[in-house]
């Protein structure tokens, strides 16, 4: 069935809440109004009631911390951190509490928690509502980080996130919500740590994260028009990261462009480039190219925001640079 990412997430929440009565949804505006800013949780209250679809005050530390405490004691909460930028007001609960429960309690704890959060620029939402920030989270042991780029992956990865037993941050790119694709019906679960080959190719690997996987696919089309065969890889989860698939692709193509909407310092692009430099050095015929946002905040003005976000042209340019090396 063809549906958007927004619809696929909404459907999966309905299915998982029906499947397991311990699944609760909590956050700001999840129950009332239209079901969040983009209506992702619409209809859940009517179906499952306010005991399981819980509107909270604007209180991110309490939302994240209480979701963690609830997960520790028997619920399977899906908490919404409206924008990932709001990590700034609740990071302790994730960094020092939830991420460490299992380890610091010697394996006694299970924390089956999903934090759904919106990431990314492209909607003119400015410096405090448009960041990526997932590299910060992927750097924290004990948390898994998921970055779906299409509706089918969103469904399968969210189902897995809700059913597995570790804390997961599920990053929804707001500029992708309306993107549609075919979504498998019924039970559909994608294991973490398995990259998807978006396009098979032989000349160069384009590894794109979240929305950048979509742009990388568009770049592959442009490159194909020039007779260049690009392979596009979408890791889909950043922690765990499917290093094996990335290395396997690079062993075939000899060239790699990593496309990441993060700021460049300590980005996932840097992590993947470093990983390939260390473990795939013999495969490389050219330096790894990183395409990222610049080391600036996200500007509100659409004309500068357009400059900020990596473009298809940036990806094509970097691919050619690697090919011409």
């Amino acid at each position: 069935m063809k549906m958007s990412i927004r619809e696929a997430i909404n459907l999966t929440l309905h299915e998982e809440m029906a499947r397991d009565s311990r699944v609760v949804v909590m956050g700001e505006d999840v129950a009332s109004g239209q079901g969040g800013v983009y209506g992702v949780t619409a209809g859940l209250t009517e179906k499952f009631g306010v005991a399981r679809v819980i509107d909270t005050p604007i209180t991110e530390s309490a939302i994240v911390g209480a979701a963690g405490g609830a997960a520790l004691t028997g619920l399977r909460p899906v908490a919404e951190l409206m924008f990932i930028d709001f990590l700034g007001v609740c990071l302790d609960q994730l960094l020092n509490q939830i991420a460490k429960f299992r380890y610091m309690f010697g394996g006694q704890a299970r924390t089956p928690l999903v934090i759904r959060t919106m990431i990314g620029a492209g909607e003119g939402t400015g410096p405090q509502h448009s960041q990526i920030l997932y590299p910060m989270l992927a750097a924290i042991p004990g948390i898994k980080v998921v970055v779906p780029s299409n509706a089918a992956d969103a469904k399968g990865l969210l189902a897995e996130a809700i059913r597995q037993d570790d804390p997961v941050v599920f990053c929804e790119h707001k500029a992708l919500y309306m993107n549609e694709c075919e979504v498998p019906e019924g039970d559909y679960v994608i294991p973490f740590g398995k990259a998807r080959t978006v396009v098979a190719g032989t000349d160069i690997t384009l590894c794109g994260l979240s929305r950048m996987a979509v742009l990388a696919e568009q770049a592959a089309v442009e490159l194909a028009a020039e007779g260049i065969s690009a392979e596009v890889i979408d890791p889909r989860t950043l922690s765990p990261l499917d290093e094996e698939s990335i290395l396997a692709s690079v062993s075939k193509t000899g060239r790699l462009v990593v496309v990441d909407e993060s700021n460049p310092l300590c980005s996932m692009a840097s992590e993947i480039a470093g990983m390939v430099a260390e473990f795939g050095f013999d495969y490389l015929d050219a330096p790894v190219q990183r395409v990222t946002a610049p080391h600036t905040p996200v500007p509100a003005t659409p004309c500068l925001e357009k400059e900020y976000v990596p473009s298809v042209a940036d990806i094509v340019r970097s691919a050619k640079k690697a090919l011409e090396y």
Partner: peptide, 27 residues
């Protein structure tokens, strides 16, 4: 911590525990 006793952990972050306790109350 001792999950079998409902003891959800000492906490080295001052003020770290109350949101977690609220979550246990929600459960």
């Amino acid at each position: 911590a001792d999950m079998t006793k409902g003891m959800l952990g000492a906490n080295a972050i001052v003020g770290g525990g109350p949101p977690i306790a609220a979550g246990a109350a929600l459960t």
